[in-house]
């Protein structure tokens, strides 16, 4: 088959899929996003005219920009903490025998099946004074005058990381399991300790999947609002909480404008990060 024919065949086979995606995803999203450019409080399809009023309001002062930067910083922190915890745990699971490794994978997938809402409620109980850890510790005499540990930033951060860990582990487990065990054996023979092997061999060799997992965590958490709203104080809330609030109060155009700002920020950040670090990762061989 010539190259032209091959390109034509590829186009023909992908065209129906592209059309489907265009009709079911791209067009509705474009329509929705177009509402960001309608007058505040009145969507385009409800007779609202074209306007940049929503964006003027967003950038009127630094409030929303501040919340956006706070959200980005929080999500970066959550991604980093998650990777730091998930990586060594995944290394341990990857070294287990097949049966135990499979058991862990099933457990991780099961924990992912729980919704964000259920997880958040479960943690509210765990962190509450009445029936959670603070009460137990007080009962054991380890704490005095214990209060509930939620709402607050630490509780929110803890649960965001907790919720992200299984996702990261599921992402990291296949490359770690496939990683050639003789790489670490070689380093050990050269005199490197297990910790040195982890830092000097395992981490650099797996930088591509780690980077991809980090990006995925960033993307997933950027739009999260349930955990933030249920376990954080209003001052801790992520940007998506505001979007949800405006949706609930039927100011769809403003909510969509906020969502568009968040989307653009995330896309720009992911793009810049990929250009800065992703290419190097992409050049590394899969192991």
């Amino acid at each position: 088959m010539t190259r032209t024919n091959s390109t034509r065949a590829t186009l023909l086979t992908t065209l129906p899929v592209l059309l489907f995606v265009l009709l079911t995803s791209v067009l509705p999203i474009c329509f929705l996003l177009s509402n960001a450019f309608s007058e505040s409080g009145t969507a385009l399809d409800q007779g609202g005219g074209w306007s940049l009023e929503n964006f003027r309001e967003i950038f009127y002062d630094s409030y929303y920009v501040g919340r956006m930067l706070y959200t980005v910083a929080l999500v970066v922190l959550v991604s980093i903490l998650t990777l730091m915890l998930a990586m060594p745990l995944t290394v341990i699971i990857a070294r287990l025998k097949n049966f135990w490794r499979s058991t862990w994978v099933v457990l991780l997938l099961t924990s992912l099946a729980l919704s964000e809402v259920l997880t958040a409620y479960a943690w509210q109980i765990i962190l509450s004074k009445s029936s959670g850890l603070p009460g137990w510790l007080e009962g054991l005499g380890l704490l005095t005058d214990a209060n509930s540990w939620w709402p607050g930033f630490p509780a929110m951060l803890l649960v965001l990381v907790y919720f992200s860990i299984p996702i990261a582990m599921v992402m990291l487990l296949p490359p770690l399991s496939r990683m050639d065990g003789s790489l670490s054996d070689t380093a050990r023979m050269m005199g490197f300790s297990k910790i040195e092997v982890f830092w000097r061999v395992t981490l650099p060799v797996l930088r591509r999947p780690i980077f991809q997992t980090g990006l995925l965590l960033f993307l997933l958490n950027s739009g999260g609002f349930v955990i933030s709203q249920q376990l954080g104080r209003p001052s801790d809330w992520m940007f998506s909480v505001f979007i949800a609030d405006f949706m609930r109060s039927f100011n769809v155009p403003f909510a969509v404008a906020l969502a568009l700002c968040l989307l653009l920020t995330v896309v720009v950040l992911v793009g810049v990060t990929y250009l800065a670090f992703g290419r190097e990762g992409a050049n590394s061989r899969d192991v």
Partner: peptide, 20 residues
């Protein structure tokens, strides 16, 4: 003795060269 204390080098079947 630990591997590093044996004064031996090894070439693995997979070669185990560090891809990074």
């Amino acid at each position: 003795a630990k591997p590093a204390e044996r004064n031996c080098g090894m070439v693995f079947q997979s070669l185990a060269l560090f891809p990074h």
